[in-house]
Design a protein around this nucleic acid. Structure first.
Length: 744
DNA sequence: CGCCCTCGAGTTCC
DNA sequence: CTCGAGGGCG
């Protein structure tokens, strides 16, 4: 890797000592080329390199020596350095010598990349099939076809093709917004830069899994070891690390692979088939790699048979999988089934049993959360579970340690009539379920040290010494220190600057903790006065002189803070950290009250129902009248604004920041927040399906038409509701129009 | 009163 | 990502 990442200043490869001219009769110096000749040369080199890449990555059979290949690439870079206008002229340009960008750009998914529900047992798979049949109202004799395919353990990725040409690749991210990894994905030999086929729609997003095979993983770790670099824990991490390289050349040196199994946005043409399996077949025709273990099944029994077959073949596949995915084959039925919250109702991931390991629980640590909740965490002797080293595991709460669940039932069974508890010094089984989060699932009683004692859950806050109490019927114990508890204060500030609230970059856990301890930031508003205090003539310590800080990082932080002086009001309210007021309730409250000030005035005037005011007062009624806001949430809001310290904190904050209008609903569907009425006989779905779909999209479904109705969806033989809709001037949609609107 | 769904809160690891 | 709790509805 001694080759420079950019050509030398002159752009001439020969300038560098030891870089010998190409063997076969020196080509003309790049500087001597005309623009036309350069363009031709550029194209020719690009094609040659792409060909070698394909043979190298796809067929695993390099056709030239490394030295020859390097020479080609150097010449290619030199041409581009001399004729920068050629950059981007073909698909290679990003692959070679691209300047590493500081960061990946964000890409908004036109169609969200959702996650799948999980099944772990045969029964759950049978239940899934039964649920699908029930929802669709299929008679017992009707055939239902489902596909089954291995679930690759890699990274989901969305590849965008325009007119058949690869233009962009994005990671899944949070499902709605991912990162632009186009430059890196271009280096994946298996991914075609152009789809071949006359039936490729103008815009087509292919979705699939980027992964790394076992052999490549072993080779890369061998290389890492030789170079004295840290090893990757598993192929998935290696793939993730490779895909997220800022320098695409490093990605290119890591043989990543790809399987296509789904799609996102499709426009300027039709899907090539009306079934899942048909589309996958088309993918293969178009030149995309598809998984050979994809089959069509007619029953839960067949799905399970395929699952067990894949399970048997698992070790010999050459790549990691973590289960089998089942999907309803018919796209029309998929459409009818729709979604439950974030997952499609028409697909499920059947996961392989979680991987487990036994290790020692060294001690139990208590963390104090933003709301004062005391959460026990198990500090473990590090152990590898499913390829990842685990050293912590949540113990959830007091009852979980005592071995009982929420309903008082034993969760790990009983021993001598007592629920099995967890003690410091115990050997415990750690499980990383299909997900990521490690859990303590059982205790090895026969290895329990003789001196191990029952864990005494603290009744005093470890951070401030206040009483920690457990409300009747609640499972969490909370510190009552409230505003005086430093742990809570730090957590509140962390919450305030977190990504979903003010989103201030450069203020992480460490920094907030340090600033708090130094007395620099004790409440949210202090963040905004940090810079002024820092640059004041008499300032005792300058940020840039603090350990771990320099001129640039300080400047960046101040810039990030300044950028947030205008902030959407919903983020501000959410950031205050009022109990029970998360992102959704913050928006609900602000949709009703408009501004923080009005909310605050109402909250201050509100009297929760009590002895003197059995029904509260008008302001209270207004609060609990808001859809989704009940007495518990309302009281939390009232309590917050009644507390003088909170009032001062809010005042101080409003002196520093300017609230902006609320952001659009995050799950921004076109029908979100609208009221819909269905009437007549719907052709493509039952009334229940229609209602479920509308509600998933954030719409309210009403029974009768009023002037508050946004849309009336009219099926066949619609009657009085349709007439009324026309009278009131409410928009009337056909079923198809509604589906089009709802889907995006 | 009980069920279902959504939201909030807390957490792990890279 | 999961659990528990709040809210709405039958």
């Amino acid at each position: 890797m001694s080759r420079p990442s950019t050509p030398s200043a002159s752009g001439l490869p020969g300038d560098e000592p030891g870089d010998g001219a190409p063997a076969d009769g020196a080509p003309r110096e790049v500087a001597a080329l005309t623009a036309d000749e350069a363009a031709a040369e550029h194209a020719r080199l690009g094609e040659a390199i792409a060909g070698h890449d394909r043979r190298y990555y796809q067929d695993d059979a390099p056709s030239v020596s490394d030295a020859e290949y390097d020479a080609l690439r150097r010449r290619y870079e030199a041409v581009e350095a001399q004729f920068p206008e050629l950059r981007g002229m073909d698909s290679l340009s990003d692959k070679v010598g691209a300047a590493p960008s500081a960061k990946f750009a964000k890409v908004r998914h036109a169609v969200p990349m959702l996650s799948l529900g999980n099944a772990f047992t045969d029964e759950e798979v049978e239940e899934f099939v039964a649920r699908v049949r029930r929802f669709l109202g299929l008679p017992a004799e009707a055939d239902l076809i489902l596909t089954a395919e291995p679930k690759i353990d890699g990274l989901s990725c969305s590849l965008r093709y325009e007119n058949g040409v690869f233009v962009q690749a994005a990671t899944r991210g949070d499902g709605f917004e991912g990162e632009d990894v186009s430059a890196n994905v271009r280096t994946i030999g298996e991914i075609p830069h152009r789809l071949k086929g006359a039936d490729v729609p103008g815009i087509f997003e292919v979705r699939g899994e980027v992964y790394m095979g076992h052999d490549a993983f072993a080779a890369i770790n061998a290389r890492q070891q030789e170079a004295g670099k840290p090893l990757f824990a598993n192929p998935r991490n290696a793939a993730a690390g490779s895909l997220r390289q800022l320098d695409a050349k490093i990605t290119a040196s890591r043989p990543l692979r790809f399987f296509a199994y789904a799609w996102g946005e499709v426009s300027g043409g039709e899907l090539p088939a009306d079934t899942q399996s048909g589309v996958i077949e088309a993918f293969a025709r178009w030149g995309l790699p598809t998984n050979p273990l994809t089959v069509r099944c007619h029953s839960a029994a067949e799905l399970l048979a395929h699952y067990h077959r894949i399970e048997e073949e698992r070790a010999g596949l050459g790549y990691d999988i973590d289960g089998v995915v089942y999907k309803v084959d018919s796209l029309a039925l998929q459409g009818r089934l729709g979604f439950v919250s974030r997952s499609p109702r028409w697909a499920i991931a059947h996961k392989f049993p979680a991987q487990r390991a036994i290790t020692r629980l060294e001690r139990i640590e208590i963390q104090v959360g933003r709301t004062g909740a005391l959460t026990p965490v198990a500090k473990l002797t590090p152990v590898t579970v499913g390829g990842v080293v685990v050293s912590n595991a949540s113990l959830h709460n007091e009852d979980y340690i005592r071995g009982i669940g929420g309903s008082g039932e034993p969760i790990r069974g009983t021993f001598e009539g007592e629920p099995i508890d967890i003690r410091e010094g115990d050997f415990v089984t750690i499980q990383r379920a299909g997900d990521v989060i490690p859990q303590v699932v059982s205790v090895e009683l026969e290895r329990r040290p003789a001196e191990a004692k029952r864990y005494e859950f603290p009744t005093l806050c470890p951070a401030c010494g206040s009483n920690a109490v457990r409300e009747e019927g609640e499972v969490v114990r909370r510190c009552t220190g409230g505003l005086i508890c430093p742990a809570q204060a730090v957590e509140r500030i962390r919450h305030f600057v977190s990504r979903d609230a003010l989103d201030i970059e450069g203020l992480g856990e460490k920094q907030v903790q340090a600033f708090f301890e130094a007395g620099l930031v004790r409440q949210p508003a202090d963040i905004f006065t940090l810079e002024a205090r820092d640059s004041a003539p008499g300032a005792l310590t300058r940020l840039k002189n603090r350990e771990g800080w320099g001129e640039t990082s300080a400047k960046n932080l101040f810039a990030a803070i300044a950028a947030r002086r205008q902030v959407p009001v919903n983020r501000l309210l959410y950031g205050l950290g009022i109990r029970h007021v998360g992102e959704t309730n913050a928006k609900r409250l602000l949709r009703h009250f408009g501004t923080l000030e009005v909310l605050r005035e109402t909250a201050r005037a509100a009297v929760p129902p009590g002895e003197e005011h059995p029904k509260g007062n008008e302001a209270w009624a207004e609060l609990v009248g808001i859809e989704g806001i009940g007495a518990v949430v309302a009281e939390a809001v009232v309590d917050f604004f009644d507390e003088p310290n909170n009032q001062a904190a809010v005042d101080a904050l409003l002196g520093e920041v300017t609230p902006e209008p609320m952001e659009a609903v995050a799950s921004a569907g076109a029908v979100s927040g609208k009221t819909v009425v269905f009437t007549g006989t719907l052709e493509r779905m039952t009334r229940d399906e229609a209602k479920a779909m509308a509600e998933r999209l954030g719409a309210k479904v009403a029974g009768s038409v009023s002037k508050k109705t946004d849309y009336v969806v009219a099926g066949a033989d619609a009657g009085s509701k349709l007439t009324k809709a026309r009278d009131l001037g409410v928009a009337v949609l056909t079923e198809d129009e509604w589906l089009a609107l709802a889907s995006g």
